[in-house]
Amino acid sequence: MFPADFDYVVPRSVDEAVAMLVHYGDDAKVLAGGQSLIPMMKLRIASPRVLIDVNGIAELAGLRRDGDRLVLGALCRHADVAASPLVREHLPLMHDAAQLTADVQVRNRGTVAGSLAHADPAGDWPAALLALDTHVTVAGPDGTRTVPLAAFLVDAYTTQLGANELITQVAVGIPPGRTGGAYAKFERRAGDFAVASAGVQVTLDEAGRCAAVAISCGAVAPSPFRARAAEAMLAGQALSEDLLAQAEHAVRDEASPFADTRGSVEYKRHLAGVLVRRACVAALARARGERVDTLHL
């Protein structure tokens, strides 16, 4: 199984990559990790005439702290996130997601930015990063622009990214103290796409009540979404078992999954609620300074 024939070009800078995108337009695709693109090309779901391999652009590599933000270059691999002590300390939700994405080999190559650009409805990064203060920066012929992730993600496999634009970085706000986060995922077998997934980020006030909460759901709608009704139930409250149970039910109603080989509509709605509740419990424990390992479900 081989991709259709294509030309291969290697830009050395973001400017050069953008110039190539402008030149080739819709005929070109950007190759970063290639862990979704290459299989799609082999299956002939995608047949770009030109691949622009950005792996040699040094300025896009790695992750770093920039003030109150964690900045992931467009070439930051899943494994880079999983191995980062900075991520583990400040953004455990991302540590969870990095560990639960695909398998070792794919994590070594695949990129976070690529996952956002691909926007698979069951992908881990779109869902996980939606629960955080995430902004995507893209470079195009008119310079760079930065958009909140919620606006960047338009629909299933559809983003705001123009044919002549390249993601350069993904920035995530480092949360204040008394904040905890968790990402929970249910998969049919290890390394698979999610049947359902949930991200929860909670900040507690001095009295231990919920000062702020963000809940995201993946794989249970055409695109990952924020569970606003459940968030509204929890905000400002002491997070009791009863309240978490109510939020779990609210999430089931907010989900709009379709039936496929991974499960029925009812099953996925149920799972979405369960995963939100489990992620809430883990996020709360972490906000209180307790250690919780990534939830392998």
């Binding site: 291969y8 290639g34 290459i38 792996n55 080999q105 070594n108 190559r109």
Partner: peptide, 11 residues
């Protein structure tokens, strides 16, 4: 560690 079917030789 990578899967050599998910990487181009030219890469």
């Amino acid at each position: 560690l990578v899967k050599s079917c998910l990487m181009l030789a030219v890469q």
